[in-house]
């Protein structure tokens, strides 16, 4: 009988009002506009969708976006775990300040990050000149896109790994080393498997954020079609040409590809969790 009821009994008031407002507001701001994306993309038909998405320029933009996001998320795992390790286990007088600074890329408006990174790495800047002497150009190349994506993704990995690392009891490591494991063995066989789920979820968050990122990337990317043009920018270009169908098709493809990517990572995570038994 209880199974058939919509809601479990409660003495608290306001269920109807709060749920009603939630559903109404959610529909107004999120669901109806998002359904426009799906319905409008269906208007052009499957053939029209494919014609847009299979254009070389569109494919190239997907390739650039995904490759850069993947690179950035992988590098962020290295940087993020290092910083998280420092924040949990390091001894440093100004640790609290560093801890607060970690959130700055998240709080900084993306356009501001974009022009700051560009100014920092432009070919005529001090750093840009030094890198040019080494034969590396970062700004206005695919490397620039990766740098911007590292910047915006870093807090996600740190904030995922930090609590997991803090929960890790030192006794486990002591037990491993008292049983004769070397430090490297302890890290690889004991610590890493315990941190893996949080590292993976940080990686996923950073990757997802990088895929859709626009503001911090467009300034440093140079935006050359086929080479440094990201998918988000191509959507805007199509819109400026009043090609709504094209813009919608690219948006749907980007959304679908990123959902697939996240789904794949979640599957890996579930498998890893089963494998390591946590």
């Amino acid at each position: 009988m209880n199974r058939l009821k919509f809601k479990q009994n409660s003495v608290l008031p306001g269920f109807g009002l709060s749920l009603g407002f939630t559903v109404f507001y959610l529909s107004l701001i999120v669901l109806v506009p998002l359904s426009a994306l799906i319905l409008r993309s269906a208007e052009g038909g499957l053939e029209g969708f494919w014609r847009t998405v299979s254009q070389p320029r569109v494919l190239a933009s997907f390739r650039v976006t995904f490759a850069s996001a993947l690179q950035a998320a992988l590098l962020n795992v290295v940087f993020g775990v290092t910083v998280a390790w420092f924040l949990v286990r390091g001894r440093f007088p100004l640790k609290r300040l560093v801890d607060a600074l970690v959130d700055l890329p998240f709080a900084m408006p993306t356009a501001v990050s974009g022009i700051a990174l560009t100014a920092l790495l432009a070919p005529n800047s001090a750093l840009g000149l030094a890198l040019a002497r080494l034969g590396v150009q970062v700004a206005f190349t695919p490397h620039g896109i990766t740098v911007a994506m590292i910047f915006i993704g870093l807090p996600f990995v740190i904030r995922s790994v930090q609590p997991a690392l803090a929960d890790l009891s030192a006794e486990l490591e002591e037990a491993a080393s008292s049983l004769g494991a070397t430090r490297a063995q302890t890290l690889w066989r004991v610590v890493l498997p315990l941190l893996a789920p949080s590292i993976l979820s940080g990686f996923t968050l950073a990757f997802a954020r990088a895929l859709g990122e626009y503001g911090s990337v467009v300034f440093i990317a140079g935006n050359m079609p086929m080479r440094t043009e990201i998918a988000s920018l191509l959507i805007i270009t199509k819109l400026e040409q009043f090609d709504y169908t094209g813009a919608t098709a690219i948006a749907v493809a980007l959304l679908a590809l990123s959902l697939l990517g996240i789904l794949a990572i979640n599957l890996i995570q579930a498998r890893a969790a089963r494998h390591w038994g946590n």
Partner: peptide, 9 residues
Amino acid sequence: AVSPVIAGL
């Protein structure tokens, strides 16, 4: 989960 440009679109 929706990128900013798609949110505008």
